[in-house]
Design a protein around this nucleic acid. Structure first.
Lengths: 376, 376
DNA sequence: CTGAAGTTTGAATCAGACG
DNA sequence: CCGTCTGATTCAAACTTCA
């Protein structure tokens, strides 16, 4: 089958994904990174609260008539990727809840062996403008070996060392791709609607490939995979149908310099300040619903509700909002304003937050969260 | 079909999941929470349709056969859950990468409408002992409405208020179930291998059910769903096959006390508050016909008409329509766009609506809250 | 030039009542 | 079932404007 197919790395194959993959030889690729269409199927336009329109993904390449058609497409390109992978090769997929369950099932059906699912937590996701769902603040990656027997690459020590000597977990925190990294077209608009951050590919390639490995991206887009692969001294192959994307990717990758063998960049981990919301104290049982809270001088008595709000007669809201309301002020830091009673004395609920941080592992020491106010 | 099936809540149905679900009436349940078996030991536990054992996992056909069997089981209990759900009902599933892709695909295939996938990030996950994978530090939840048209319950304001006035995101941080909350058997060993933390169910039930709702858990285990449902004033039904688990769950739930009705009051939503049409302000004499209204910066001047419409030269219509027209936008909330003048200053007409609610006796508890502490 | 203030934007299956 | 109309709703970061 593959007798006259030769692997030429560091180039983009222009054309249909499955057709182009057929031109690659069997067992020639170490890793596949695939960011396939998400099949979003947006129905109507979405307005922001200020009545401006959200520039959603409505490109033709993301349109599929049904799950059946999407599954058919998925099976076709997955099968080609599997053929092209070396026996010890592996694959990364990325998707959202719209498509990732189809991807994962198809992977398993074809004999891939899932090693982890990994969650990319977005520092700065787009909010949910209508207030009808949770903020969609993550995307899901699947890491799978070609089959159960594959001796896949995993640079455990590198990842651990770059993670303050803690095992790298399955939840990763990165900002979305914006700023200077985000490619723009001639008109100054985003060149690609779904450009992935280089930090994501950086961790993947450092963690699951070795220098010199061949990385295939069958949905190359504007070439994030190629750019990071080149920088990290990996070889790469991209497949992309859209010639505008191809042009942008080629120009982008041409500017990238390969790092010297010695200089192994450490992951710039953008840690956000650990935050404990008030509701967590209720959910964790540290404050019972019905428990009273007071201001410092006991002039106001409020009651904790099961939904994580606080109430006085005639008003209910967050600890901050209610603190502002009872004082007739515009704003209030509820953490220092409200107090719980213990041993006949009042303590700011901020103290509880410190203990919750410990329970949630957001501070150094590990201990258990005991209820501090007994049920009545 | 369901003519002689009666819904008896707050009890455990002992027996096979699908068989027991068949005894529940159609459209009787508000929410399903399901924590199905994870399919971890495919090769040893699962039988082929002809009851021969699937032995050996080396063979791709066996793996496929096993997934087939798991999918058949999944479709069977999901279909019963869908039948039992009210038209506006919803479902939560929880799983790991071993089974969650099968669950999500089956949900979509049966017509459920996925609203979010949610990631439970574990504070204290089990480390990966062999250092060959990422620490499996999360599990995945799927929240889905019965179908696309379902008007599902979502207590957006409660979740936001309990999260320091920020929208609740799709990534949740909770410790695994341990300490006193973890049920032990007579030998002091954990009574159930995968007991879920009550905090997880607390957030789910607060966020997506109302007091009095019926919550069904078809894989009840040691009854976390029932315990939290009872505490939060929701009704519950469990299905469990293992009589040891049933006994542990019954003892556990018997000890739980339901919170007082007042503790369960949720943050009221502006959406559910009674509506005051603009015309009522004119009828009540709060705005006289001919009165001028302005946008925030006085760039536009409109005039109130006796019929409750608003007019600028050349255009007339509702406060919303006219606000959109003068801005050249597709939509506009007239209540916040238009302002009336009083004491030389502009105030949004939304303020008048609040006063109209009081005048019309439509105001509930969330009325004009007076400061309880005098300004200093 | 600097900092404050305002604007733009990101893989989105994003409403509900009423006639 | 479908069209019409009211009116509820956003977070973090980058970028632009202006004092």
């Amino acid at each position: 089958m593959a007798r006259d197919r030769v692997l030429a790395a560091n180039k983009i194959l222009v054309g249909d994904c499955v057709e182009q993959l057929r031109n690659l030889p069997d067992k020639s690729v170490d890793l596949v990174f695939a960011d396939p269409p998400y099949n979003l199927q947006l129905s109507t336009e979405l307005l922001r609260p200020n009545n401006t329109r959200v520039d959603g993904v409505d490109d033709a390449w993301d349109k599929f008539a049904s799950f059946e058609e999407y599954d058919r497409f998925t099976r076709a390109w997955l099968a080609e990727c599997r053929r092209v992978l070396k026996p010890d090769g592996a694959m990364w997929l990325i998707g959202s809840y719209h498509n990732v369950f189809r991807l994962g099932s198809a992977l398993q059906d074809q004999g891939f062996w899932i090693l982890n699912d990994v969650v990319w937590r977005k520092v700065n996701p787009m909010p949910n403008f209508r207030g009808r769902r949770f903020t969609n603040a993550h995307e899901t990656l699947i890491w799978a070996a070609r089959d159960q027997k594959s001796r896949y690459t995993f640079n455990y020590e590198s990842l651990k060392a770059s993670n303050d000597d803690l095992q790298m977990r399955s939840d990763w925190l990165f900002p979305i791709c914006s700023g200077p990294e985000r490619l723009k077209d001639d008109g100054g608009r985003k060149a690609h609607p779904t450009q992935k951050p280089e930090a994501l590919l950086h961790r993947i390639l450092i963690g699951t490939t070795n220098p010199g490995d061949v990385v295939l991206d069958p949905f190359f887009g504007t070439g994030t995979t190629g750019a990071v692969a080149k920088r990290l001294g990996r070889r790469w192959i991209g497949v992309e149908r859209d010639t505008d994307y191809v042009k942008a990717a080629e120009e982008r990758i041409a500017k990238v310099k390969t790092l010297s063998t010695s200089s192994l960049e450490t992951q710039p981990s953008k840690r956000t300040e650990p935050r404990v919301p008030f509701g967590a104290l209720v959910e964790l049982g540290m404050l019972r619903p019905g428990a009273p809270l007071y201001d410092e001088r006991r002039r106001v008595r409020a009651e904790v509700k099961a939904d994580g709000t606080l109430a006085v007669p005639g008003s209910q809201g967050s600890i901050h909002r209610l603190g502002a309301v009872v004082q007739g002020k515009a704003a209030c830091n509820g953490w220092t304003f409200w107090h719980y009673e213990r041993g006949g004395r009042l303590h700011p609920i901020d103290n509880l937050r410190e203990r919750a941080k410990v329970a949630l592992g957001l501070s150094g020491k590990q201990q258990r969260a005991e209820p501090l106010i007994a049920a009545e």
